[in-house]
Each structure stands twice: as structure tokens, then as C-alpha cells.
């Protein structure tokens, strides 16, 4: 029979084994999130498509037409913006939902044990599904427009993973503070909407003057978003500087995020 030991600051190894044991629960959480999100709406999954498309149109108009910025690698401006919003959506949703995971799931967590990391894993899976839907819409639109991606497109799962890891690392880190200071749940959405303009989502990284480029690349999201755009846009050069900075951020933030999350999950039910 399986032996379980409970101690203050319990052993880690048991915890990771538990995550594996509870993997079905993560899928169930993901399924719940996706089902609930689209159940009540008449057009269903269509909302995952329509809202971003309108958003993309607006930004294309502002940055491409009004400001007259250049696109990446001769791609139609619209395609470039759409390619930017997909990873940005994944990244920003991962931050928002992972950072509030203790609060949104407090009712369940107060009553049942499961390794708490299951819950951010579940939401992350749901966000990936959303992003895949958005990506397939973009591909259809690209085919209609006659702009085909090259083989490097097949690398997109890697860049999805990078965006997800970066967003959830930040989310995990913030989640522990979100339990104590609820103000964060007001600040995070604000920071995200500002952050979108500090990241090459709706414009090319080339629009940033050369001498600011390094500072601009210190933004952890810059490399992640730019790299994803690269895999969709044919003649776009790969920006190694920002990409490496992003990877360094992840290597640094992910363990810290896990550490804070683990620290909080032990006793957060006593506070919430």
C-alpha cells in the first residue's frame, strides 16, 4: 500500500510523484475551463476568434496605417500583428490566471487535497487550447491571403512552451503575494495592458532605435513574442539577443516561481 507522510515542510519528492498521480485532474480542470468559457455563448468557440480579430484590425490600423510602421520581413501588417497577439495572449493569460489560482480555486482547495500546482497546469492547458484555435484561424487567413509560412513554422510548439513557461513563472511568483495583497489582482491587468506596448506585439522590433534595442530586450516578453513571430513570418531574421535574454529570464524565474508557490500552498488555506 502507498505510504504517505505528513510533516511540516513535507518532502518534495512525494509532491512531484503526486503531481503525476493527479495528472487526470489537470486535464479535467482544463476541460472545465474550456467548456464553461464557451458554453453559454451563442457562437461558442467563435468568441475566441472574433474578439482577437477585431483587436488585430484596430492595432493594424493604428500602428500600420496611422503610424506607418514597417512590418517584419515583408509580411502583410495584419498577419504580423496577428502573429504577435497569439503568443502575447498566451503569455498574459498565463500570468493573470496562474497568479490568481489560489483565489479562484480557494473553495476547492479548502476542502480537498491535490498538489496545488495541478490547478495552474490545468488552466495553462486550457490557454494553450485557446491559442491553438487562434493559430489555426490565422493560418486559414494566411492561406486566403496567399501568404504561406515556411517550414520553420513547425517549431511553433517550442515557442508556445516558452511563452507559457515565462508567463506562468511570473504568475507562480505573483500568486503567493496575491494571497496576502489582493491589490495585485488590480495591478496585474493594468501592467499587462501597458506591457503590450512595450513588447513587439503590434509592431516590429526593428521599429525600436538601435541604441535602445538592448534595454528594450531586457523585457522578458520581448524575446518570446519576437521568436514566435519569427516562426510564422518567412523572411524575418531571428533576434538572438532578445531570445537569449528571455531564456535566461525563464531559467531564473521558473525555480523562483515554483519555490514561492510551494511555500504558499502549504498553509495558504489558513489565510484566505
Amino acid at each position: 500500500m502507498r505510504k504517505t507522510v505528513i510533516e511540516p515542510n513535507g518532502r518534495n519528492f512525494q509532491y512531484w510523484k503526486d503531481i503525476w498521480n493527479y495528472r487526470e485532474l489537470a486535464l479535467n480542470f482544463a476541460k472545465r475551463d474550456v467548456t464553461v468559457r464557451y458554453k453559454q455563448t451563442r457562437i461558442g468557440l467563435g468568441w475566441a476568434v472574433i474578439a482577437p480579430i477585431i483587436n488585430v484590425f484596430v492595432m493594424t490600423f493604428i500602428f500600420g496605417n496611422l503610424a506607418g510602421l514597417e512590418s517584419d520581413g515583408n509580411a502583410p501588417y495584419f498577419v504580423m500583428v496577428y502573429a504577435g497577439t497569439i503568443p502575447w495572449g498566451l503569455f498574459s493569460k498565463a500570468i493573470t490566471s496562474v497568479s490568481s489560482t489560489f483565489i479562484t480555486n480557494a473553495d476547492i482547495m479548502k476542502k480537498v487535497y491535490f498538489p496545488r500546482l495541478i490547478s495552474p497546469i490545468g488552466t495553462s492547458i486550457a490557454h494553450v487550447i485557446d491559442s491553438l484555435v487562434a493559430l489555426s484561424i490565422l493560418l486559414i487567413m494566411m492561406l486566403i491571403m496567399g501568404y504561406f509560412p515556411s517550414v520553420k513554422f513547425l517549431l511553433f510548439p517550442v515557442f508556445f512552451l516558452i511563452c507559457l513557461l515565462l508567463g506562468s513563472s511570473l504568475g507562480l511568483f505573483l500568486s503567493s503575494f496575491n494571497v496576502k495583497w489582493r491589490d495585485l489582482s488590480q495591478i496585474i491587468p493594468f501592467a499587462i495592458s501597458v506591457g503590450q506596448y512595450l513588447t513587439p506585439v503590434a509592431y516590429s522590433i526593428d521599429s525600436i532605435p538601435e541604441n535602445f534595442r538592448l534595454i528594450y530586450s531586457l523585457n522578458p516578453a520581448t524575446g518570446a513574442i519576437n521568436a514566435f513571430k519569427w516562426c510564422l513570418i518567412k523572411d524575418m531574421p531571428f533576434d538572438w539577443t532578445s531570445f537569449i535574454i528571455t531564456i535566461v529570464w525563464i531559467i531564473f524565474l521558473f525555480p523562483i516561481g515554483i519555490y514561492f508557490f510551494r511555500k504558499t500552498e502549504r498553509t495558504f488555506v489558513d489565510i484566505v
Binding site: 505510504k3 505528513i6 510533516e7 511540516p8 515542510n9 513535507g10 476542502k111 502549504r266 498553509t267 489558513d270
Partner: peptide
């Protein structure tokens, strides 16, 4: 659901 401050359970 929450951890003890002290002690051990098997």
C-alpha cells in the same frame, strides 16, 4: 489541506 506546525503523520 493544510500543513501541521509540528508533528508527524504516517
Amino acid at each position: 489541506i493544510t500543513e501541521p506546525t509540528d508533528g508527524r503523520i504516517e
